[in-house]
Amino acid sequence: MYKIVKKEMLNPSVVLMDVYAPDIARVCKAGQFIVLRIDEVGERIPLTIADFFPEEGLVRIVTQAVGYTSRKLMNMSQGDSFLDFIGPLGQESEIENYGTVLCVCGGLGIAPMFPIARALKKAGNKVITVVGARNKELLIWEDILKEVSDEFYITTDDGSCGTKGLCTIVTKEILDREKIDHAWAIGPVIMMKFTALLTKEYNVPTTVSMNPIMVDGTGMCGACRLEVDGKTKFACVDGPEFDGHKVNWDLSMKRMNIYKAKEAISLEKAIKGGF
C-alpha cells in the first residue's frame, strides 16, 4: 500500500498528491512516470512524475478529474493509500546544456514540465517558459515554475491572465526574436502538435512527452503504441519523450478515443458512486 501523505487541490478540478513510495523516489528522474491502481477493481493508469523527494521518500503526482479513474482518485483523502504504485517507468529526459531552452506547457502539462525545467536550469541552460491555460482559475504552479525559469510567460484563452490566446502566439514571438537551441512541449496532444509544427518552422529540435492509454507500462502490452518517423514505438519503454517533429499526431489523437463508448458507462458509474 502506498500512502497519500499530502493532498492539495490546486484548483477545483486539479489535485496534487504526495505518495509515500521511497524506492521510486530514490531513483526516479525528470521525465519518467508511474503507474498506479487505486483498489482491487481499479484500472492501471500512468501519470508523469511531477516532483520527487528522495529524503522523505515521496513521489508527487498532479492529475485532473477527467475520466472515471481520475475522479475516483480525486475522491481519495490524505491518509488513504493506493493499492499499487509502480515505477519509475519510461526513459528519463535527456538533460544537457543545450544553451537556451524553451519550455512550452499547456494545462496540466505544467506539472510534469516542472522537474524537467528545473533540471535544465541546473544543467546551465537559459530557461524560457510559456504556460498556457484556458483561464486564470485553471492555472497551476505558475509561481513554482517561474522560480526555475529565466523568463516566464502566461497565456490564457480568455485573457484573464497574461497574454490572451493560445500558447503558440507567445511561443512564436519568442522564436522570432531569440535563438532557441531546444524546445520542450508538454500538454494536451493537440497543443503539443501545434507547438511542434511551429518549432519545426524554426528548425528548433523539440521534445514532447506522450501520455497515451497504457495497461502495464513495462512494454508488455503495446496499448501505448504511437508512430514516430513512420515506425511503431511503445511510449512506455521507448518514451514517454519523443522527437515532436516526427510524431504522427493524428494517429495519437485517434488512439485516445478507443474507449469513448465505455467512458460514458464509467462516468455514469462515477456519478452513482458520488464522485
Binding site: V41, G42, E43, M220, C221, G222, A223, I265, S266
Partner: peptide, 24 residues
C-alpha cells in the same frame, strides 16, 4: 490489440466484468 494487451485486460484486470471492474 496485441494478444498480451487483450488478455491482460481481460484476465489480470478482469475487463470481462466491466463495469464492476474499472478496466474496459
Amino acid at each position: 490489440y496485441s494478444a498480451n494487451e487483450y488478455l491482460t485486460r481481460i484476465n489480470l484486470m478482469k475487463a470481462y466484468k466491466f463495469p464492476e471492474y474499472d478496466t474496459p
